[in-house]
Amino acid sequence: MISLCGDITNPKGVIKRKINLGDVVCGTTTLKRGFAHMLKNGVIMDVTSVEQAHIAEDAGAVAVMVLDKLPSDVRKAGGVARTASIKIINEIMNTVTIPVMAKCRIGHVYEAHVLEKTNVDMIDESEVLTPADENHHIWKWNFTTPFVNGCRSLSEALRRIEEGASMIRTKGEPGTGNVVEAIRHINKVNYDLAILQSMKNSGNEHILINLARDFRVSYSTLEKTAHLGRLPVVNFAAGGISTPADAAYLMSLGCDGIFVGSGIFKSSDAKERAYAIVLATTFWNDPDKVQEAQNLIDEKESMIGLDIKELELQMQKRGSN
């Protein structure tokens, strides 16, 4: 059983389909969240080409995320960052057997429709791209394809889940090679959860309903989340992860898996590093293996990191409403 906390009745994304000979039901909350559950304890890698997708699959990635540019190049290029070319997404879907995801701009309903028609396995409504709507996120219940969204706190995560997100990633600061923000945000979510549970244990419903109003989420979602003691959907870490030790540390903080953006393909030892990060994620609780994984990479080959305090653009602040 998986939690259905925060779901709605009769979402439009649930449809009947003919598969082979008979009618079946697609796009249910169990199927969308269940897909994310199958990715647990895995690494999802950002890729921009078929060649990179192959390296990711061979290294043991559980999925690839297709972008036009890696986050660090988005940062350098400036301007408007949009969804990737359909042609590249199709080429990658035709060459790897693992799931293929792609990013759309926050609130851009029609980039999402285009990605759904392209038949990607999951859509990332992502702050790495330039937001298209500063007031609304996509109403994700209208889609049969599951969505992943970023968050910096429990309240942000629950708002995205109430809009239909089937998976969460705690935001870091993308394209920096600096893991500090990813760590800050998983810690924040964990603190928020601990406080929520102690509020529930107090037995005072007024405290919970006031928190729900603060969080701008329903009482029911908050109460069920308190009961679960964790986010109701799978939660990966993202943003700035560039070494096996980064990945293992985030797993130890309670993340269900890891997204790696620029960290692999902006290093000079992409192939070795891709496998090393997978190895450290799988065996994060096994110090020998984490050391072995870290030994597979050379710090001289790591991407140059950026100090968060010196950044002009903080992508993490996008779409926090």
Binding site: I19, C26, L31, P99
Partner: peptide
Amino acid sequence: ERNHFGRQQNSFES
């Protein structure tokens, strides 16, 4: 045969 019924959009309950 892996992915016999198609990609995630064709994941189903029955």
